[in-house]
Amino acid sequence: MSKIARSRSIGSATWRAVSSQPLIPAGLVLIALFGVIEPNFASGSNALNIATQASVLLIAATAMTFVILTAGIDLSVGAMIFLAGALVTSTWLQSLPPALALVLVALCCAVLGGLNGLGVAVVGVPAMIVTLATLQIFRGLGGHITGQRSVIVDDDLRFMGRGDVAGIPLPFVVAIAVILFGTFVLRRTVFGRFVQAIGSNQPAAMNAGLPVKRVLIGVYAFAGLLVGIAAMVQVGRLGAVQPTLGSGFELTVITAVVLGGTSLTGGRGSVIGTMIGALILAIVENGLVLIGASAYIFDIVRGAVLLSALLLSGIPQQLLRRLRADSSSTPQSART
């Protein structure tokens, strides 16, 4: 007769999520390294600087974490940021109060994301193909709205990218709110559990009677909403919408998610991990400028980070599993 031991308390689940990040040591080493070379790096104002610069990535990467957890991918993120920015500058919204205009744009992004989801869930086209197509559509629409020009954004539509709450830059406050909300949805809600279940084993989810299609559409729509918010912050910070806005950003976002330990095959990952991945990318970019690295070093380092993210996504999972198994090695049940 076997017994099931209560394995861990709730609090340790958070600890596990954090401790399973192989990046935390790497991040600390980076911070120490930059800090030694350039004392300004470790200053408080630079920390706020990094936080602000990471915020758009943090929000978009939280969105991408949900998508990748379902074993999907969203390549249209950068294009959607551009399209959202274009909508913000469009004349249709000029007459509305700024806050309402931004809400409308975010909802519009949720609908566009939902279209991605429809393609993936209902039509059954691979996510990479669907979102590659919508990438072009979104870019085209955005280009049509802006006429491929640099469009300056009105000051009253820029509030998401400026200002602060008790000294903390508003973009970072928004990013933290999104991360907390994302973590809550993923860890504590039925929807979040379904997301992970579908990514882990879609046939099993079907057989268990889970509303797979609805959840998938919901995931892409949710991602669209968050990307819309990311776009508000980005446009607010930049003060202009330009044809290359968000171009190639999806790769940075995917890099952050993968760096954060989310498996590209779905089912396994966390928003907290993504947050750490995104922060490390922002720290690297900031640190390189501060230590005065040559422009060519930037590309080398960016490539190395991407490569290590890809390597990390494979190898250390096994290592981690072993480490985790070690910490709970005592067999908790007697065999019959």
């Binding site: 039925v190 559990r193 379904f194 992970q196 279940a197 882990s200 084993n201 046939p203 099993a204 989810a205 079907m206 057989n207 268990a208 009677g209 889970l210 498996s263 089912g267 396994r268």
Partner: peptide
């Protein structure tokens, strides 16, 4: 189902989640 590994259990998720997934609502 006949294929428990591919269609029944979430191999990469905690056992608890497989046990509760059907009755989660």
């Amino acid at each position: 189902t006949e294929d428990r590994r591919d269609e029944g259990i979430f191999l990469e998720r905690p056992i608890r989640e497989t046990l509760s997934v059907v009755a989660l609502d």
